[in-house]
Amino acid sequence: MPESPPTPPEELSSDFVELLEDCSAEELRAIERYADALAEYREREARLAEDDQDDVADRPEELPDDVPTRATLTIKEINGNRYYYWQWREGDKVTSKYRGPVNPDE
């Protein structure tokens, strides 16, 4: 155990350090648990926001805004006519969104 109090990090304001110094050991342990949980939450949110930005950057121009980037373009034949559909999985369900007819010249 240290014999003298620790030196506070420079990143902390003096007002915050004073508030911490007035806390009991039990309160400081509670603050520690909360701070760890809050840091994990904020890091996760930042990763998700970064992933969302990557999805936007990688998003094909022809992909509609309401279709996720993981969707694939498929062709369905209905009554002898062929159509493009965006398809993606949402849990156990496969969702489709109409794109347009298949051009036979492609």
Rank of each mutant, 00 (worst) to 15 (best):
P2W: 03
E3T: 04
S4P: 04
P6R: 06
T7Q: 15
S13W: 01
S14F: 02
D15H: 06
F16I: 09
F16P: 06
V17N: 06
E18K: 08
L19T: 11
L20Q: 10
E21N: 10
D22M: 05
D22T: 09
D22F: 00
C23G: 05
C23F: 07
A25S: 15
L28V: 00
R29D: 03
A30N: 12
E32D: 15
Y34S: 10
A35Q: 10
A37K: 05
A37R: 04
L38I: 08
L38T: 14
A39N: 10
E40R: 12
Y41E: 15
Y41D: 15
Y41S: 15
R42F: 08
E43I: 06
R44H: 14
R47E: 13
L48S: 11
L48A: 13
A49Y: 05
D51E: 15
Q53G: 07
Q53L: 08
Q53M: 05
Q53Y: 07
D55L: 02
A57C: 03
A57Q: 12
D58R: 07
D58V: 00
P60A: 02
E61Q: 09
E62Y: 11
L63M: 08
V67D: 15
P68H: 01
R70T: 13
A71C: 00
T72G: 13
T74D: 14
T74F: 03
T74A: 02
I75D: 08
I75A: 01
E77S: 01
I78P: 01
I78W: 04
G80K: 00
G80Y: 02
G80R: 02
G80N: 03
R82C: 05
Y84W: 10
W86C: 03
W86P: 02
Q87L: 04
Q87N: 14
Q87M: 07
W88P: 08
W88Q: 10
R89V: 08
E90P: 08
E90S: 11
E90F: 00
G91S: 02
K93C: 03
K93P: 08
V94W: 10
T95F: 05
K97V: 00
Y98R: 06
Y98L: 03
R99V: 04
G100V: 01
G100P: 06
V102F: 03
V102S: 10
